[in-house]
Design a protein around this nucleic acid. Structure first.
Length: 583
RNA sequence: GCCCCCAUAGUUCAAUGGAUAGAGCGAGGGUUUCCUAAACCCUAAAUCCAGGUUCGACUCCUGGUGGGGGUACCA
């Protein structure tokens, strides 16, 4: 009796078959956790949905099924029927404690599953562009991607982490134009070589803004940027040294961020690596009639499929993002063996782009690509204070946000036994936890109105609240573990008080939650669960003493506290957030 | 114009078609001789509008209103 949920579904199905002589599919057996604990641990509206078909009252059906279920109740304390026809199931204390004990047996494996073993998924995320800032939009991307990677892996998926970084294209040309053509910026170039990465990136940012303006102005300066762009694609020796140098600045800078955030990648792809192949594929697609020429460019006419028409090769012969994507896909689908799926974690404004490139790929090779390409279009991030733009100079970079979170975290650490080095570590983990959680709290598809103050909050529904709950639980467990060993514990010997019961009734749900969060790409579901668990645990902790409890009770509380700590640790890990023993 | 996404408390967010719509922050009140008060407890406060489907709608459908994104040579 691992997961009860599937067992209960089976039970309801066979009960319906026996008592009503009716066959139901798993999907039709509704089974949910009622909001009100008075209605039990699980509730089914089976009878309500069958009423019309069977021409009986929902209450009568519910009573019939409930009676059949009662005959086989294994881990059910109560099987009740409530109007207008709900069947409410309450789990036994034995089951709850058995499951709690199981957490302590399998430890970090609790919440993991082999259900999706055999699937190979390439998850592509982060993809910042070189020569540009890494702002909170990217931060959301990498935080979501990292969590999704861990969630999928926890379900047995063979997961490949990929990062596709844009190191050629107009944005690079703009930055390099600013660097070479604007004397006030160019003059700082030599100086900045001796400065830290952040200064270098700042300079690139300023250069980009100038290049962007020059391009938008049209005429002479627009032509200059365009010419520079072409030179970069052609690897013209006059620009390559500067391109190589500044590209490396960005890559070093990104590396720093990945390290701080605890992300790593199995494969880095670059636009500079795939554009030639993309160009070749696009030209072949032109020959085979999938793409066509129009106004000097090579385009895909999407009208037949209800899609937009998009350019793959420009009038000047350069590959666009679209053509590059064809080169990328070809690489991605050939390097890692057969892929079950390739998930692109990319900002929502690329929705049209992906619909078109996926369609073209499908037309090129249906066996390879059809139904395997997926765009995970999470929402974008804006500041509560207003829209971000590099022109307005109100871009919030990932590092500046982390640093302001650090400032807040530093003041709060209170464990006096921590050394200076440990304090630094804790500060960093709390800061990263606060920022990451603040981005993962939201449904992924939702646009965020980002509240800077709330994102570095250390209390309430926040990452540090969960980290704190863990540290607090661990602290009391350390004190308990050094105590003399306790009398043998059997579940029959204790009763759960309401606060203990509330905790126990959440513990067993963790594997259900990780499964659902992975299936729905919804780290926020996991976050909500952990927050609820921590709340229930803190309420229990506040009301009942663990150290001063009578032996049997103490054993029970030790079990619950250990299990909660383990689940918070496992759960936060799936969100990409670290825990610490003291804070 | 066309396509996609969104609208829930003062505010930022939750709620696989289910029972009394939940939290954080903010506002007001309370809890510490006791295991980490980054905590706990209590109070006030919300489904954009109009129809429809359903035993049951924040959730699904239609039509509005309001906001965001996309829509050919940027990524």
């Amino acid at each position: 009796m691992y997961l009860v949920r599937p067992e209960l579904i089976k039970l309801l199905k066979s009960a319906a078959l026996k008592s009503l002589k009716i066959k139901i599919s798993d999907e039709d057996v509704s089974l949910e956790h009622p909001a009100d604990p008075a209605f039990g641990d699980y509730s089914s509206s089976l009878a309500l949905t069958l009423a019309k078909q069977l021409e009986q009252s929902p209450m009568a059906i519910a009573n019939t099924v409930a009676e059949a279920v009662r005959k086989e109740k294994l881990y059910l304390e109560k099987v009740e029927v409530a109007p207008p026809g709900f069947i409410n199931l309450t789990l036994t204390k034995e089951y709850l404690l058995h499951e709690t004990a199981r957490v302590l047996t399998i430890r970090e494996l609790y919440g993991c599953s082999k259900a999706r073993a055999g699937q190979t998924i390439l998850l592509e995320f982060a993809h910042p562009n070189t020569h540009k800032q890494f702002h909170i939009g990217h931060l959301r991307n990498i935080t979501l991607g990292e969590s999704l990677a861990r969630l999928l892996k926890s379900q047995g998926v063979n997961l490949i982490r990929a990062n596709y970084q844009g190191d050629v294209g107009l944005h690079v040309a703009k930055a390099l134009w600013g660097l070479t053509q604007v004397s006030s910026i160019g003059s700082q170039l030599t100086k900045s070589r001796k400065l830290g990465l952040e200064k270098k990136i700042e300079l690139l940012g300023e250069a980009y803004v100038e290049g962007h303006k020059a391009f938008a102005k049209g005429g002479e300066t627009e032509a200059q940027v365009a010419a520079l762009n072409k030179k970069i694609y052609e690897k013209d020796p006059s620009i390559m040294p500067l391109w190589t140098e500044t590209r490396q600045w960005s890559l070093d800078y990104f590396d720093l961020i990945y390290k701080r955030l605890g992300s790593h990648f199995d494969r880095f792809y670059f636009e500079s690596e795939v554009f030639a192949k993309g160009l070749t594929i696009a030209r072949e697609a032109l020959k085979s009639g999938i793409l066509k020429e129009s106004q000097g460019a090579v385009v895909f006419d999407g009208s037949e499929y209800g899609l937009d028409t998009r350019v793959f090769i420009t009038g000047t012969g350069l590959p666009t993002y679209e053509a590059k994507e064809l080169g990328l896909a070809s690489l991605e689908f050939s390097e890692h063996g057969p892929l079950t799926k390739c998930i692109h974690v990319v900002a929502p404004e690329q929705s049209s782009f992906f619909k078109v490139t996926f369609k073209v790929e499908e037309l090129l090779d249906p066996g390879k690509y059809a139904l395997r390409q997926e765009h995970f279009d999470y929402g974008y991030v804006d500041l509560k204070e207003g829209k971000m733009s590099s022109r307005a100079g109100n871009i919030v970079t990932a590092l500046s946000l982390l640093d302001s979170a650090r400032l807040k975290a530093k003041e709060l650490i209170k464990d006096a036994t921590l050394t200076e080095v440990e304090r630094e570590e804790v500060t960093e983990k709390v800061a990263v936890g606060a920022v990451k959680y603040s981005l993962l709290r939201y449904g992924a598809r939702r646009n965020i109105s980002f509240d800077l103050k709330q994102s570095v909050a250390l209390e309430g529904n926040s990452g540090p609240y969960l980290q704190y709950t863990y540290a607090r639980a661990r602290s009391v467990l350390r004190k308990l573990e050094s105590a003399p060993s306790l009398a043998g514990f059997t579940s029959a010997s204790v009763n759960l008080n309401p606060e203990e019961g509330a905790v126990a009734r959440l513990i067993y749900r963790f594997p259900e939650v990780t499964k659902a969060a992975a299936a729905d790409y919804a780290p926020n579901v996991l976050g909500d669960y952990l927050y609820l668990l921590a709340q229930k645990f803190n309420a229990f902790y506040d009301k009942h003493s663990i150290l001063k409890a009578a032996p049997a009770e103490q054993e029970l509380r030790f079990l619950l506290t250990s299990a909660v700590a383990q689940i918070i640790k496992n759960g936060l890990n799936l969100l990409g957030i670290e825990v610490m023993e003291k804070m």
